[in-house]
Design a protein around this nucleic acid. Structure first.
Lengths: 201, 201
DNA sequence: GTACATCTTTACCGTACGGTACATAAGTAA
DNA sequence: TTACTTATGTACCGTACGGTAAAGATGTAC
């Protein structure tokens, strides 16, 4: 992806590539793939266009990098949630931390998997598909964990891991939409707590 | 909005304005405001650009018309739901019909209030704000209805109409995201049914 | 120093965008 | 027929987009 072959020769890069990537991630999360222009990106990074292209390739490749970075962070959160001891604890962790992260005042509101490209023109169709895949994988991991929970007996025999996972994912994406509307952490937390009432006993 | 002053004089319009508006609505719902180009619109309508501008004004005004049309349909569904007799029945109606409408095979997937402009560039910022307002109004109507339900005694005294309304809205928006991922009515229905487990008894 | 590699700057490319001027076609009114 | 009104088709406008060519700047290796 990036050049592993970075000999010490040549003019050194004048900007920190990870800082630039974080800037790109912020913008993509806030305005989506199509809504973020190259001028937005270079301006926010404080560099010129060819520097961006030399470092990352084209816009699509830059998004790919930013998405990977986001996905890495996301999976830290996800893993932590899925490592909880019971199905109920997993659900609590997922929803309450979603509320916290999606409305983090330090970051753009909402989830990149949703905000990145929910509805878009033909030029971003492949990005949209990729985000659909990411969302699907998240849901799949939750489903696997809940299947185990059911096998472990900390979910009733009548409970459906697939339905519960789909429900949790839906609430998380719904909270993302609400976060993008400017709702606070407290408001999202109440949604999470209400959703948890649906958990089978 | 449209010209009431339509004397029988002058060359008659060669296309049906409501059909054209429906076409616009479909496109905006599928690709969002920014993702839908004037060429997409005129091509799908089978007319030329000046005809579109003469009939609707600019792109923004056309979106406004399409949004109004969508909102009219939406409020039929919403009113029907809010007219149910109990809080529980309202919630059921809202969620189950959301599932049905959001994944309608005859229409683009998802809700225009969400898909229209969730994350976008500066040029669509006002559209985004407007959709936030629409979502807020929907939630407010649900909240009002649930307050009445509580007063009527068909919600427990401990229940929070505001929290329940926010929860219902979140699930509906989450289902919209899932619908945009291509999930079927059946899958969305299971989400709705799972969500209903959270309803206070 | 010289050679070499890489990044940066400026200036530009083609394309697609939203929007419009203008001449003409197609209807009604007299 | 003539005048008038409105919609249409063509051809175009300026701007912003994603992307790049080419020349100069800045480092390392010798």
């Amino acid at each position: 992806m990036k050049k592993k072959s970075s000999p010490e020769s040549g003019r050194p890069r004048s900007f920190n590539i990870n800082v630039a990537l974080d800037t790109a991630l912020r913008l993509f999360r806030e305005k989506g793939y199509e809504g973020t222009s190259l001028s937005d990106l270079t301006k926010a990074m404080g560099i010129n266009r060819p520097s961006l292209y030399a470092a990352f390739g084209d816009k699509r490749a830059l998004f790919e990098n930013a998405l990977q970075r986001y996905s890495d962070f996301y999976h830290v959160y996800l893993r932590e949630a899925l490592q909880q001891e019971t199905g109920r604890a997993v659900a609590e962790h997922l929803l309450l931390n979603s509320a916290r992260l999606l409305a983090d005042p330090q970051n753009p509101r909402g989830c990149l998997f949703v905000q990145g490209a929910l509805a878009c023109g033909e030029g971003a169709e492949s990005v949209r598909q990729e985000l659909i895949n990411h969302r699907g994988k998240v849901e799949k991991e939750i489903r696997r964990r809940l299947k185990r929970a059911k096998a472990d007996g900390d979910l009733p025999p009548t409970a459906s891991p697939a339905d519960l996972a789909a429900f949790l994912a839906s609430v998380m994406y719904g909270m993302s939409v609400r976060a993008a509307s400017g709702k606070s952490r407290a408001e999202l937390k109440r949604v999470a707590e209400t959703a948890l009432q649906a958990w089978p006993k």
